[in-house]
Amino acid sequence: MNIFRLAGDMTHLASVLVLLLKIHTIKSCAGVSLKTQELYAIVFATRYLDIFTSFYSIYNTLMKLVFLGSSFSIVLYMKYHKTVHRSYDREQDTFRHWFLVLPCLLLALLIHEKFTFLEVLWTFSLYLEAVAILPQLVLLQRTRNIDNLTGQYVFLLGGYRGLYILNWIYRYFTEPHFVHWITWISGLVQTLLYADFFFYYSQSWKNNKKLQLPA
């Protein structure tokens, strides 16, 4: 564990907490894409199947359980909690997210490090995570009023990926066998998707204005 990875995990955790705070205490999911949340639930469910087969550390297992639990509870909240569901921007959140799943699965079947069940699902989760933010970014662009919590959520999520890139660079130089092209490229693609958002987020922060993305 290095400082970049820990900071990345903590940023990821913070993003989830911000979202849960919004949904649980304010009882609103305005501006939050259910499509993205459903994709994340699939990402974690397919990536963390190894909690049944391998043990790394208590930290690792706990974090996996937190990400699994939070992603599924966010989806359930948005779908079935009356008040939360009412605030959902259903008409705006129209990205055809299921069309992302099949190509990612096919790609994982074609390009992977080892052809085993867990390994292919792990790889699938990496590809799907790379594009899972797209419905959320599209929704942000359509939403005229982005509240602070939603902006912070996306900012923290992008920050987590950025920190993981620093972690991979660090590990590449400090651990002799650490070469994982699939993880790196999908992580890089994912981070690049946030570039535009980061630009407007920093602008709004600098000018102390409300975050608004151009249509």
């Binding site: 990821h12 190894d50 391998s54 550390s57 690792n60 974090m63 490090e113 080892k114 792990w122 994982h180």
Partner: peptide, 10 residues
Amino acid sequence: EEDYFDHDEL
């Protein structure tokens, strides 16, 4: 060659 594969990351 050791069967090195790293899944310790989240």
